[in-house]
Design a protein around this nucleic acid. Structure first.
Length: 429
RNA sequence: GGAGGGGUGGCCGAGCGGCUAAGGCACCGGUCUUGAAAACCGAGGUCGGGUGAAUGCCCGCGUGGGUUCGAGUCCCACCCCCUCCGCCA
């Protein structure tokens, strides 16, 4: 959520930011917010004055009654004042309601260095490793996985419909070991605290991170209890300190959690439907940081590097992309995407999205900190990033480390944990 | 799911519909002291938000409604916590 005070004092900056995102109705929203704000403040001022008077007179009425004197004139007068206060209160809460609606539907302002334009304007920041060129025709992961007996797509669809997958045997184990290994990496090397969190959350939590109210169609809702399935562990992790006032010495907070992620992919019908590229349920290890405003820019670089480290350790070629304003997520002010090379499908696959949300989410979830004793509380900055999303990582592993005979070598960092060094088709074993 | 109890400042805890929400603890300030503790002093101060140029004023007693000239207090709904019972991996 943007700060109403910023909109009031520098509306042009917000208008410019919205247009950089390519938002057509940003202009109108800002204008409406300014008008509402004006009206609201006038009503508040008037109401406060009347309340001050009512407090005063009510005290006098109390005194008169105590002395057994008549106060009916004052009571009659206050009846009118009370009615007027009620009307003004209605005006204020109506203005608040409309203001909230507008603010909740306005995305974050991109940072200065974020390029304008849509996906086509995304900027390549750096590359790591050489995309493998197999001396044989590289095959897609669904063929390899199916042959190896570790990926059972038809049965996933049978049990839950399209977009749901089943991993078996060594494939299931590989995924579990990857999760375990990534969590250890972030805890032991990067200083994160590991958390296990709920996968069902309230509407309020989903509103806090920005998925609601605008993107309700993208998430699963359990209607009996009005709880939502999380699309990412970012939701519980960022809502963890909702309505808290932290001490400066508590920051930064770094949390990592594994969770399954549930996404309806409402607008994506027909795209990337094969194999593991786009599914309704997938596993992910997430990183979330709470930082001071001074450090958040730098913290995004750190967090991105921490996600990259996973790919480096696995020896997978990837590139880092800085998203253009129009491609940014709703709550993000700046995002780096990590794309890993998958030679079988011949695509760069997004396996991580690392974002600095500044105080946008913090304002929604109301998480503040006191910069120094005696100073006024300020909103913290929140950051999040995948490290990493499992299915596409599995795709890259399978397709990168495949051999001509259909077997797949395991990355050396995992071999000891796995207890095996390669996946071999049943016919070859 | 059923029954009962509870939610008031940083913490504990009182609060017949009426002046400014008792009292205690803690912290801060002052006196005393070489220093500290203890003791004493103080109609004092302490949290968050809103609004205003400002001394200020307004709001906040779990949340949201309602009654009233006036609600921590009365009414309604909901949330959370504790105890017991039931169910359950």
């Amino acid at each position: 959520m943007l700060d109403l005070k910023t909109i009031r004092s520098d509306p042009d900056r917000v208008r410019e930011a919205m247009s950089r995102r390519g938002l057509q109705n940003g202009e109108a929203a800002v204008g409406e917010l300014l008008t509402l704000d004006e009206e609201r403040r006038a009503a508040v001022r008037r109401g406060d004055d009347l309340r001050a008077r009512r407090n005063e007179v009510s005290r006098v009425i109390g005194e008169l009654k105590q002395k057994g004197e008549d106060a009916s004139g004052l009571i009659e007068e206050m009846r009118t004042v009370g009615r007027e206060i009620g009307e003004l209160e209605d005006q204020v809460s109506e203005a608040d309601r409309r203001t909230q609606t507008l603010l909740l539907n306005l995305p974050n302002c991109p940072l200065r260095e974020v390029d304008p334009g849509g996906e086509e304007s995304n900027r390549l920041i750096r590359e790591w490793g050489e995309p493998v060129a197999h001396p044989f025709p590289a095959r897609p992961h669904w063929e390899l996985g199916e042959e190896l007996g570790v990926l059972d797509l038809p049965r996933g669809a049978k049990v839950s419909g399209s977009g749901f997958t089943v991993l078996r045997g060594a494939g299931a184990r590989l995924q579990r070991v990857l999760i375990d290994w990534m969590l250890d990496l972030h805890v032991q090397r990067h200083g994160y605290e590991e958390l296990r969190v709920p996968y069902l959350v309230t509407e309020e939590s989903l509103t806090g991170t920005g998925q609601l109210p605008k993107f309700a169609e993208d998430s699963y809702l359990t209607e009996r209890d009005d709880l939502w399935l999380i699309p990412t562990a970012e939701v519980p992790l960022t809502n963890l300190h909702r309505d808290e006032l932290l001490g400066a010495d508590q920051l930064p907070l770094r949390y990592t959690a594994y969770s399954p992620c549930f996404r309806r992919e409402a607008g994506a019908a027909g795209a990337d439907t094969r194999g593991l590229l786009r599914v309704h349920q997938f596993d992910k290890v997430e990183l979330v940081r709470y930082e001071t405003p001074e450090r958040s820019r730098e913290a995004l670089e750190e967090l991105t590097a921490e996600a990259e480290e996973v790919l480096q350790e696995l020896g997978l070629a990837y590139r880092v992309i800085r998203l253009a304003a129009g491609d940014l997520g709703f709550s993000s002010a700046m995002t780096y995407d990590l794309e890993v090379w998958a030679p079988g499908v011949e695509k760069w696959l997004e396996v991580s999205s690392c974002s600095n949300c500044l105080d946008y989410q913090a304002r929604r979830v109301n998480v503040r900190y006191r910069p120094a004793p005696g100073e006024r509380p300020e909103f913290v900055h929140t950051l999040n990033g995948s490290a990493l999303a499992l299915p596409r990582l599995m795709v890259a592993l399978f397709e990168t480390y495949q051999r001509e005979d259909g077997s797949v070598e395991m990355p050396s960092v995992l071999q000891e944990r796995l207890g095996f060094s390669e996946l071999v088709p049943p016919s070859h074993s």
